[in-house]
Amino acid sequence: MAGSAAGEIGRFSGPRSQWAIVWRQLRLNRAAMIGAALVLFEIVLALTARWITPYDPFDQNPLAALQPPSREHLFGTDDTGRDLFSRVIYGAQISLRVGLISVGIGGGIGIVLGIIAGYRGGVLDNAIMRVMDLLLAFPGILLALAIIAILGPGLFNVMIAVGISSIPYYTRVARGSALALRDREFVLGARAIGCGDAHITWRYILPNVLPPLIVLATLGIASAILTAAGLSFIGLGAVPPAPEWGAILTLGRKYINQAWWYTTFPGLAIAITVLGINMLGDALRDALDPRLRR
């Protein structure tokens, strides 16, 4: 995928760039629009949580414990009488933060390493990529688990763990693109007129490396949200009373046969958020990867 994207890549840096074409493509894609709408909705909810939630997400009300959905409590209440609607909406804040920070950590470090490896090549390239091979030897959630073993449980440590375990994916893609760009005319040209490495990287390499990475990062947000919720679910992530979706599900699971709403709404919230981001990410890939363009 990286290689084929590189084939078209010079055009992304031009003043009238490929982005306009991508945007036109996205607009015509129904799935992309649905995904984007979901994500946008989510962001709006998260940003306006303070004003649109009917209750304080931490406010307990012992007299209203485990009430089914009603007009007062759209998603019902939990076992301490907290309003689940308010908690799920505040959970959007947490989940988006988890997704963005994890991807920021993983993508930030991964892209820098990848460009260094691809642009510089040689021993450095080899060293970086062997370390990435090592990280990739721990499947799925396992590396995050191992990192949490070192850092200890907690939501912030989960973000670090998820971020670190996603580094190799960004590094691989960034390296592939950077490698293909290194000997392209416009880069050689820039070097010939005496541009420094930093300038070349910033001005020519980075913009052209980004498109496939944007796809990766978008999908990465979705998987970071899923992984973090999973870690909270097994008791290594967010701690109550934080309204993290996975943590709410954990608290609610013992009530699953008497209070369906307790697990259903946070579960749906995770699924819909991840679905929206995935739809958007898929469409972005289709738009950015000319090979799959139909």
Partner: peptide
């Protein structure tokens, strides 16, 4: 398929238990 990728396995597991087992 897209929903399948988006669904947290632990929630799916809980749903399966309460629907098909309980």
């Amino acid at each position: 398929a897209l929903a399948g990728v988006s669904m947290p396995s632990f929630w799916l597991g809980l749903l399966l238990i309460s629907i098909f087992a309980v």
